[in-house]
Design a protein around this nucleic acid. Sequence first.
DNA 1: GGGTCTATTGACACCGGTTTCATTGATTTG
DNA 2: CAAATCAATGAAACCGGTGTCAATAGACCC
Lengths: 337, 337
Amino acid sequence: MAGVSRSTAARALGGYGSVSHELQSMVAAAAEALGYRGNALARSVSSGRSHTIGVVISDIENPHFAKAVRGMTDAAKAAGFDVILANTDENLDAERAAVQVFLDKRVDGLIVASTSRSDSAHLLDVVRMGRPLVLFDRRPDNVEADWVGTDCYADATAVMEYLIGRGHTNIVFLSATTKTPEELESGHPLPISTIADRVRAVRTAARAAGIRYEFISDAMSPERAHEIVASLLRRPDRPSAVIASYSRLALPAFQAIREAGMEVPRDISLVCLDDAEWMTVSSPEVTAVALPAYELGLKAAEVLVGRIEHSGPDQRDHLLPATFTERGSVAKIPAGA
Amino acid sequence: MAGVSRSTAARALGGYGSVSHELQSMVAAAAEALGYRGNALARSVSSGRSHTIGVVISDIENPHFAKAVRGMTDAAKAAGFDVILANTDENLDAERAAVQVFLDKRVDGLIVASTSRSDSAHLLDVVRMGRPLVLFDRRPDNVEADWVGTDCYADATAVMEYLIGRGHTNIVFLSATTKTPEELESGHPLPISTIADRVRAVRTAARAAGIRYEFISDAMSPERAHEIVASLLRRPDRPSAVIASYSRLALPAFQAIREAGMEVPRDISLVCLDDAEWMTVSSPEVTAVALPAYELGLKAAEVLVGRIEHSGPDQRDHLLPATFTERGSVAKIPAGA
DNA sequence: GGGTCTATTGACACCGGTTTCATTGATTTG
DNA sequence: CAAATCAATGAAACCGGTGTCAATAGACCC
């Protein structure tokens, strides 16, 4: 329509090569008149860049990931990338499939919150084929890639010290993993690195202080967590404090306590290693560690984009600080009580 | 490597055309040995199918959308599609840009929670070029496409009847829109259809019952909502009940009431037209309308996939029921009080 | 045994971009 | 004024798939 060759039209629209001003505007006018829009897929096939990054997480309904993904999309958008999303529900096969599909779709890079610390062949594939990869939250043992996360060991240690400092001597750590409490106790390797770090921190701090502690795993669903806490409360040697591994566990725990006719923190204390909105309106408000989810996501995408564009060689860990927020859910137990 | 032509290799791997069993396995073996993976982009260029759907919402951090997106990804995954995501923050330009980019990336279909009821040229483009489109939550006035949502008018009416039934005669409706209260009052068209329906329901029910009511718009951020409610509480003619348009407004409202030293529902009642987790652990628990967010998302993606695959002609509205959940945040006011 | 049918295969054009290369004409240089 | 330089352009090949078509050959039919 503009009376030029395909090459010239492509140059005019693609903004590369050199085109005279006159033809430039003729082509632009023709494109406008025709309602022409470039085919980003075709462009990607030849250019090798899809301007899309793949994000693989366990569940977007989890507010932590929702915030993180928001951070990722914001950083991605600022750099001209889109985000394609997959939920794995902590299922390794689903994770592998998602990574594979995204690779097939030629994403420019991947952000993965891997469900496994050790089964990382699919991630090794990614780095082997030279696709930028950023590990999110969880850090697999043998994958050489950038990692963005928080220091779970330090955070859990701080919480333990806080509890111990307030006189607690019988603490339960509630988490969602398929490992048995005995396995946790014995230092059996855990599939998810963040949980592993927290368990290790609890064990180390409790032993150092010589206090009673117990791991309860298997709180896979909110319903199950509710049951577990309810039965915990009926025990004669009821613990003085419960540490919830994350907010989806703390909520049913809180409800179970209330339904049992007990009160936080009078009858039992509650801390969470993950913050949530509701913890600021509950009675009492819940003491928690607030993870910088949005910032983590932002950082992860920024690091990824950096790798995509500069492909520098220095992979490293990017640690962001969490903030411990004291509210009103932990009792101070008088010495000798 | 398998000693066959490109065509045959493609047929063997692509699973189309006919290939002898012998060559089929030779090609498979060669592909395996070479670690060959198809290029989904190239496939999409020639096939015209990208197996990707674009989702355009205002904010993934909003739990309503997080749940909805989870539903969408689940339905999409089941049908072999991936989801690519964009946040607009209720910014029309961002929405337009996102739709355009997704179109350029040749998504097979779009789900859009549009920020505007009337400025829908970009959506009309989508239907004009024959891309399947599903409208989510909000329904623009003149776009002929499937719509998945709830009946906001009916839900808000039910809440008003509940409040009126409990003796409330001075109600404030708190929403986040740039329109002034006077514009809301006069029936001025609102950009977002769900808010428009709610405002209309409140006005109609209040007038019918002859009670006092007031619109407060402009609660754009949680901070602003907090301020607004705080000043509301200092008024001599303090309203007896506040209806929060959605949970991100109810939370700061709840906090502001508490910080003012007042108590829900003794000093003021609170209802929300959108449910949230925290409303079950706050004291008191908050009466709210629970939107079936996950199901809405699931439905939206199912409808979209149906259109992509069968392209039937009968576009329609898909209404899902919300559930009113009475908890403890609304006082019963004795007649004549 | 000749003719038709059908499965299998390769050659080749196509999708819609990008990129290399040679050609052209104008401008700058010596 | 000839030679060198350079911007602008089109032809053609490429990216990595898919689809059409004709050639081949073995199976089947009478």
